[in-house]
Structure formats: structure tokens, C-alpha cells
Simulated assay, not measured.
Amino acid sequence: MAATKAPPLKIVEPTYSVSEAAIRLNLRKEGEVNRNGGASKKGEKWLRDGVNLLGWPHYRLAGELRFSESDLAEIQELNRNKPETRGRRRQSNRRPAAHRAKTAA
């Protein structure tokens, strides 16, 4: 009888809460406070909206939103600025000066 292979060992990645993930992605600094003196929530809404509206990778453990290292790396890659679209000139709605001169005459 042939020997059966054991299934590959799965490694559990550490996970981070929304607040910790915002710090890991450098959306805010650890210990940062808001104007009222309370703990800052900067970046947390952006992460929650990305999960709920855009389907970003995440885990829900015990009803809590959690992110692994690979999830954070994928979110960072999804939001990377594309060099060909950055710094593009805006389209103007104004008509050329020659056209305005003809209509004014």
C-alpha cells in the first residue's frame, strides 16, 4: 500500500485590527490624537469603506474586521499610483479665444 502524504502545514499570519492596520499602512502615527484630544481614527473609515464597498481582502474573526500582512500588501498594491495617469492635464471646458472673438462680434 502506498504511503499517503501529510497535508502541507498551514502557517497562521498575524492579523491586525482596523486601527492597527491604519498605523501599519502609515495612514496615521501611533499615539496620534485628534483636535478634541481623543484617539485619532484617521484612515480607519477609508479601510472600512474599501472592505465594504470595494471588496478589499480581509478577515472577519469573531465579528471583528481584521487584516493580515498579505492583505495589507495587496491593499497597498491596489491603491498604488499608476505613473501613466498621475499628473495628467485636466480637460478644459473653455472655448478657444478665437471662437469667443467671433461670437462677440
Rank of each mutant, 00 (worst) to 15 (best):
T103E: 11
R80T: 15
P83Q: 10
W46D: 01
S92Y: 00
R80A: 13
A22N: 07
E13I: 11
E13G: 07
N79D: 02
G43E: 03
N36E: 01
R88E: 05
R94C: 06
I11D: 12
E64N: 08
E44F: 04
V51K: 02
N52W: 00
N34L: 02
L25D: 09
L72S: 04
N26W: 12
E30S: 13
H58M: 01
W56H: 02
A105H: 12
S17R: 09
A22Y: 03
V12E: 14
A97S: 10
E32K: 05
R86Q: 10
P83W: 01
A97E: 13
V51D: 00
H58R: 12
T103L: 15
L65W: 02
K10S: 09
L78P: 00
T85K: 09
R35W: 03
A6Y: 09
R80F: 02
A3T: 08
G31Y: 01
M1D: 07
H99N: 07
Q76A: 12
R28S: 02
E13C: 09
N34Y: 02
K5C: 06
D49T: 01
A62C: 06
A6H: 07
R100I: 14
G37R: 02
D49K: 00
A39G: 04
E32T: 08
E64D: 07
R95K: 13
A21T: 04
R60K: 08
S19V: 06
W46L: 10
K29N: 11
L61K: 12
G43D: 04
K10Q: 14
E32Y: 02
K10L: 15
Y16E: 05
R35T: 04
R66G: 01
S70V: 02
L78S: 08
S40M: 03
A21N: 08
E44N: 11
A3E: 15
A97Q: 12
R100K: 14
P14Y: 06
N79H: 04
A2D: 10
S17C: 12
G43K: 05
K102C: 09
S19K: 11
T15I: 13
A101Q: 14
L9G: 03
E13L: 14
E64H: 11
L27R: 13
K42A: 13
L47K: 01
Y59P: 00
R88P: 00
S70N: 12
R88W: 06
F67T: 05
L27W: 10
A2C: 06
R35M: 01
R94G: 06
E32H: 03
N93H: 08
R48E: 07
L72P: 00
A2W: 09
A6C: 05
W56P: 00
A105Y: 10
E13M: 11
E30Q: 12
P96H: 11
N81H: 08
N81Y: 13
E64Q: 14
I11N: 10
S68C: 05
N79A: 03
K45V: 05
I23E: 15
